[in-house]
Design a protein around this nucleic acid. Structure first.
Lengths: 191, 191
DNA sequence: TATTGTTATACTCTATAACTATA
DNA sequence: TATAGTTATAGAGTATAACAATA
C-alpha cells in the first residue's frame, strides 16, 4: 500500500518541520522513555498542536493564493494605510530586501500599491486596493471559520480558561500577559 | 538606541518564521480589526505559544550542540537500537538523502554508529554510543527542566485540564485523541 | 529487476552586501 | 554623510535524480 519511496515524496507539502513533533519526552522522574505510564508534556503538546493549527491554516489559505506571511502584510497595511515599507518590515521582523519581493508579488496581483511619499520621496507608502481589501476579508472569513471549528467542542467558559492557562504558560517564553492586538508579537519578533 | 538596520540583522537567530505570530485576527462577528474589544483567537494563541516554546527549547538545546532534529533521531535510535536508517527516515518523515547527512554528523561526533546488518548487507543498523546515551540523558534533563518551568504556575489539576482542552482542540487538526508516545506524531508526519 | 544507502544536482528561501535616489 | 528602497550575490536547507552495492 505504501507507494514507492521515490515517488511518495513528491506529493508531500512538508514545508518546515514539525518542531517537537517527533520528540517524545520521558517521564519527569527520569524513568525510561518506554515506561508504562506515558507522561504528556505540556510544552510538547502545545507546540505540536500549534504547529498543526498553523499548518492547517496555511492549507486553508492556499486556495486564496495567499501565504500567511502575505496575509500578515496585507493586514498590517490595512490597519495603517500609508505606512512605509520600512516601518512594516521592522514590525514584522523582515529584512528590507525581503519586503521588496513580498510587496512586489502583492503589487503585481493588484492587491496593494506603492505610492511615493510626498514629504520624503525616498519612502514608499503602501495602500490596499479594493481588490486587496476584498481578499483580506475573505481571508478573515477563513480564519474565523477555522477558529469556530477549533473551538466547536468548547463552551465559552472552557475557551476562556484555555486562553488563561495558555497565557500563564506563555509568560515563561516571553509572551506578554495581555496580548493586545498590534503589540502582542513585538516581543517575539526581536528576541 | 536601535542599532543601524544593516548590522542589527547579523545577530538575530531568526530562523523559521513566527507562523501566525504576526497575524492578529478580527472579532468573530466580522467587525473591523481595530474594534475596541480585542478578540483573542484560540488558534492564534496556541500557535504563537507553541512556536515560542519550540524556539526556546531549541535555544536551550544549542549549548549541547544539538538540534531538535538530531535529538529526535538520537531518541528514535535509543528507543529501538539497531533500526535501519530507512525505517527511521520513514518514521520521522525525512528523505533518505537527508538521513545520510543527519547520521553523518552524529556519527562524526561519535554519538551513534552504523553497522552492517548481517542479514541484509545493504541495510545499515544504527546504535547509540555510550557518549550518545549520555548526551541524550542531558538533553532530556533540559527538556524536563523546561517543562517544569512552563508548568510552574499551574496546579496539577490545571495542568491536566490544559492538556485535556488542548486535546479537544487538536482533534480538529488531525491530532489523535490519546497521544501515546511512539504513535503520536505519525498522523502529522505523513499528512 | 528491485531495494538500501549514497552522492550529485537543482531549487527555494533567506541573509548580506553593494547600489540608486533622495535627503 | 546618512537613509529608503532596490538589486545582486551568496549561503542554508531541502527535494529530486542518478548511482553503487546487495538482494
Amino acid at each position: 500500500m505504501t507507494p514507492s519511496r521515490r515517488t511518495q515524496a513528491a506529493s508531500a507539502t512538508r514545508d518546515a518541520e514539525a518542531w517537537l513533533g517527533n520528540l517524545e519526552l520521558a517521564r519527569t522522574d527520569g524513568a525510561a522513555p518506554d515506561a508504562e505510564q506515558p507522561f504528556r508534556s505540556v510544552g510538547f503538546t502545545i507546540s505540536t498542536t500549534g504547529y498543526a493549527i498553523a499548518r492547517r491554516f496555511q492549507e486553508l489559505l492556499a486556495p486564496l493564493g495567499l501565504h500567511p506571511r502575505e496575509l500578515a502584510l496585507l493586514q498590517a497595511v490595512a490597519r495603517d494605510e500609508g505606512v512605509t515599507q520600512q516601518a512594516i518590515a521592522e514590525r514584522m521582523g523582515l529584512f528590507p530586501s525581503r519586503m521588496v519581493a513580498l510587496v512586489d508579488g502583492l503589487e503585481k496581483r493588484r492587491l496593494l500599491k506603492r505610492r511615493h511619499n510626498p514629504d520624503d520621496r525616498r519612502a514608499r507608502a503602501l495602500y490596499l486596493t479594493p481588490k486587496g481589501h476584498q481578499l483580506l476579508g475573505r481571508a478573515f472569513a477563513v480564519a474565523i471559520e477555522q477558529e469556530q471549528l477549533l473551538t466547536s467542542e468548547l463552551t465559552d467558559e472552557e475557551r476562556e480558561q484555555l486562553l488563561e492557562l495558555l497565557a500563564r504558560v506563555g509568560i515563561h517564553v516571553g509572551i506578554p500577559p495581555g496580548v493586545h492586538p498590534g503589540l502582542g508579537h513585538a516581543a517575539l519578533a526581536d528576541e
